[in-house]
């Protein structure tokens, strides 16, 4: 593949990533600062932003790292928090088909934002569509890594107090929850998630409620399947 083919695809991809760039640089920096403020060295956010590349889950990882060592819970948490990716994958089965080796990286980098861009944007005429989506994914990955690294490296130079910056994670999930709430027609699943989690938190306590809550949610959604499918178009 010639250099100009690559350059053309990169130039075509870049404009589509500008909104993601703003968001990833800002959130990535906050993430790096947050990790430093939580007592971790600068290379931690670099490692997680490169290897995990799932924004929300990386914030959760900070609290996992501050709790007792529990690799099974870490795996279960990643599976549940990122379960939505299963459905991004289902939606991209056809679009990513035939991408060759690049497909492995396209799937690895399938974040919420990359999914929405790659889902919506079509490569212009004469540009290889798989290479185009590859560069969108790569640029997004780079923005996130750059933001997290900058935050991690220079976070300690910030002269004002960062006490309370951990709230950024709460705020982010409140916004994600609310945004979804505003879009969905049936709130049953949102309410099940909030209600059963709160109940499990009271019953099992802060350190052990996650897995019971996940099982309770899966069980309740399965039990209510007939009702919710009839009740129609949730989400």
């Amino acid at each position: 593949m010639s250099l100009s083919v690559r350059k053309k695809a990169l130039l075509a991809a870049f404009p589509h990533t500008i909104p993601v760039m703003t968001g990833y640089l800002f959130l990535g920096m906050t993430y790096g600062v947050f990790m430093r403020a939580s007592g971790f060295p600068a290379w931690y956010p670099m490692v997680t932003s490169l290897s995990v590349f799932a924004g929300a889950m990386e914030f959760v990882t900070v609290s996992l790292l501050m709790g007792p060592f529990n690799p099974v819970q870490a795996l279960a948490m990643a599976l549940m928090v990122n379960a939505r990716h299963l459905f991004y994958g289902l939606a991209m089965l056809k679009k990513y088909a035939g991408a060759g080796v690049k497909k492995l990286y396209l799937i690895f980098g399938l974040t919420d934002e990359t999914f929405s861009v790659n889902c919506a944007a079509d490569a212009p005429e004469g540009v290889d569509k798989h290479l185009f989506m590859f560069f969108i994914t790569l640029l997004d990955h780079f923005y996130w890594f750059a933001g997290a690294s900058l935050g991690g490296l220079f976070g300690s130079l910030i002269s004002f107090s960062t006490e309370g910056i951990d709230f950024v994670m709460t705020a982010m999930f409140v916004v994600i929850f609310l945004e979804n709430w505003l879009k969905e027609k049936n709130h049953m699943s949102s309410l099940i998630g909030l209600g059963l989690s709160a109940l499990c938190l009271i019953v099992f306590g802060a350190d052990g409620f996650i897995i019971p809550a996940m099982l309770a949610i899966l069980g309740m959604l399965t039990l209510m399947r007939k009702y919710l499918e009839r009740g129609g178009d949730a989400a």
């Binding site: 379960a83 939505r84 299963l86 289902l90 979804n180 949102s190």
Partner: peptide, 26 residues
């Protein structure tokens, strides 16, 4: 894809967002 997977695909995400809000405030 199996219907049950499609169903979970639509409905699991909002519940997990709710779980995450509670997780942050635990």
């Amino acid at each position: 894809t199996p219907k049950y997977i499609d169903y979970l695909g639509k409905l699991l995400a909002p519940a997990v967002f709710g779980l995450l809000v509670v997780y942050c405030l635990k």
